[in-house]
Design a protein around this nucleic acid. Sequence first.
DNA 1: TAGATTGTTAATCGATTAACAATC
DNA 2: TAGATTGTTAATCGATTAACAATC
Lengths: 230, 230
Amino acid sequence: MSDHLENIPELAVSRLLRYHHILMGMSQGDVVSSSDLSEKTGYTAAQIRRDLTYFGQFGTPGRGYTVDSLRNAIADVLGINRESNVLIMGVGRVGAALLHYESFEKHRFHVVAAVDVDPEKVGLEMGRFKVRSVEDLSDIVTEGDIRMAILCVPPAQAQTAVEQLVRAGIRAILNLTAMPVDVPDDVSVRPVNLAVELEWLAMAQSRRGGSRGEKAVPETGFNEKKKGGD
Amino acid sequence: MSDHLENIPELAVSRLLRYHHILMGMSQGDVVSSSDLSEKTGYTAAQIRRDLTYFGQFGTPGRGYTVDSLRNAIADVLGINRESNVLIMGVGRVGAALLHYESFEKHRFHVVAAVDVDPEKVGLEMGRFKVRSVEDLSDIVTEGDIRMAILCVPPAQAQTAVEQLVRAGIRAILNLTAMPVDVPDDVSVRPVNLAVELEWLAMAQSRRGGSRGEKAVPETGFNEKKKGGD
DNA sequence: TAGATTGTTAATCGATTAACAATC
DNA sequence: TAGATTGTTAATCGATTAACAATC
């Protein structure tokens, strides 16, 4: 089994990441069926089973899958079954907020350093971190065995900051700056732009009620439930 | 022209949103060709032209598309050509950071209110906002003509907060809590989970170098550029 | 006009589905 | 055993591509 990631359709990969995330929220020992997962994801049970066969077989006919082992198998094939150290670049309001973010640990991401250009900020204690200077970036990255960074600098400084990160050895960047950046081919960037996320909601909105007025007293209807995930 | 959103393939819709975003970053008067957009997005020029024909024809053969009018046409069909008022639910570190976020305005999202349960926070001045109480939620939503909220409460309070929002009339929620929430059918939720975004980077990482050691002195190579978006 | 780029078609390619034999 | 659910196949469905006539 365990074909490799290259052979799995792009779209299946994104679903696999979703299954992985859901399985992380379940008790290790439980058993889950493709139709359970279907309910939680909205994908068909057939598709879920199909997705899994791209890289192996993990279930017991008549029973289902063990949460623990399925989660592990998916993590293995996706290559996310490892610990990663992470650096926060820019400790403005957003960066500072992320220094206190709890849920990274559960996913095996360890924030291990915070860096800023501003001499006023360098040396400050923030949460369990002491803010360090961009000038020490290479050392910090090497010593901390860091390959990933979260970019939280002001948009105008995004490109400069990225170049510093890359020069220091960072190979993956989560870009929260709302400013596109250029990187060499061997570096990954993942842009997260909250304004664009709001656009998705605006789209969904206009698809529904559209431009017409809302009901004065909205009914609550928490029965016909729908998952709106994390 | 202007077929409606329902008739456009799901995947094309997400590309359209991407084109829209790119066009927003260009000068209104400029002309852009499908191959220009191809370079910026990585999609083929043929696909881009195909995507546009799903809902009309906007170009001039031999010339290309006017940035302004193409952006507008896309925004119209996606239904994102309107102003929206937005409420921030929970002014912890993340919520407070978003109160100072600049780039929403450019996308026609107006943050107009900040709300918290904590009596210690209610009444505080934060940026240009005075934090208001959850108890006044319905009034705030009605008076402010608000349909969208950004959820920044602690994970444990996510579901409760969502129910309050829905009861107050909110119809679209950007969920930054890393906790899945249930909503009625007529409410949209868009989850944004930074840990999951980091997983994407981890996947990309393992697909490349994998587990082997990095070069001691990484070369910089900012020539073979690659767009790593905003 | 010559050069460029659109809009559209038909062919190809890939992903999803439904069904069911195999298995626990 | 009876009931349940997997893994897998073949058929269907949809999306992408390449090519080119139409147009500026």
